Amino acid sequence: MMSGLGAALAAASSPSWSQRVRAGRDLASFADLPEAAEALVGLLLDVGDTAVTRQTAEALVRVGTVAAVRLIALAVAEADDQQADWLQTGVHDAFVGPDGALEVAAICGQLARDREEAVRRGATEVSAWVDGTRC
């Protein structure tokens, strides 16, 4: 399993957008590991291709852990307007039904009390996106 992590970490810095997309998907389940978390935030804020941003956000929401959603919140706090739009699209893409939105909303509620201000700010934004999908 760790060899898969190593390969995904290497792919995260690939010049190929499709390899970076695959890395985002593969690393999402390792969101709680510091080395994967750092690479995932980089992929969420990818300046080379919006597909990397979108699909990494989708993969993290599908994992659905606090660690995964926390990385999206961190990225949202640092994102420019275009990146934020693609992060939001990726979050929305992950919702198969209203239950997914409810889980992310509950996690955002937890993250609203995070020790890092950037996480709290990003979680508030993601929560607003989620609320918009449940209307």
Rank of each mutant, 00 (worst) to 15 (best):
R54L: 10
R54N: 05
R54G: 03
Q55L: 13
T56S: 09
T56C: 06
T56Q: 03
T56P: 00
A57D: 09
A57G: 10
E58W: 02
E58L: 08
A59P: 09
A59E: 09
A59D: 10
L60Y: 06
L60N: 05
L60S: 04
L60V: 08
V61S: 02
V61A: 01
V63I: 12
G64C: 08
T65Y: 04
T65C: 06
T65P: 05
V66H: 02
V66T: 14
V66E: 14
A67K: 04
A68E: 07
A68F: 07
R70A: 12
R70E: 13
R70G: 01
I72P: 09
A73Y: 02
A73Q: 01
A73W: 03
A75K: 07
V76P: 00
A77L: 03
A77P: 01
E78T: 05
E78L: 14
A79E: 02
A79G: 08
D80W: 11
D80T: 10
D81A: 14
D81L: 12
Q82D: 15
Q82H: 13
Q83L: 10
Q83E: 08
Q83R: 12
A84C: 02
A84R: 13
D85A: 13
D85W: 13
W86R: 13
W86I: 06
W86C: 03
W86Y: 15
Q88E: 15
Q88N: 14
Q88H: 12
Q88S: 12
Q88R: 15
Q88L: 08
T89S: 10
T89D: 10
G90L: 09
G90T: 09
G90W: 09
G90E: 13
V91D: 05
V91R: 02
V91F: 07
H92R: 15
D93S: 14
A94W: 04
F95E: 05
F95M: 06
F95T: 06
G97V: 09
P98S: 14
D99F: 07
D99I: 09
G100F: 07
G100M: 06
A101Y: 12
A101H: 12
L102M: 14
L102H: 13
L102P: 03
E103C: 12
E103N: 14
E103Q: 15
E103W: 14
E103Y: 14
V104S: 10
V104K: 05
V104I: 15
A105I: 03
A105N: 06
A105S: 12
A106E: 15
G109T: 01
G109P: 01
G109C: 01
G109M: 04
G109R: 05
G109S: 09
G109V: 02
Q110E: 09
Q110N: 02
L111T: 03
A112F: 00
A112V: 01
R113S: 12
R113V: 08
R113H: 15
D114L: 04
D114R: 00
D114K: 00
R115I: 04
R115A: 11
E116N: 08
E116I: 02
E116H: 11
E117Y: 13
A118Q: 07
A118L: 04
R121Y: 00
R121H: 07
R121K: 07
G122W: 01
T124Q: 14
T124F: 05
T124N: 06
V126L: 13
V126Q: 02
V126A: 03
V126N: 04
V126P: 01
S127C: 07
A128V: 04
W129S: 00
W129D: 01
W129M: 01
W129K: 00
G132R: 14
G132E: 15
T133K: 08
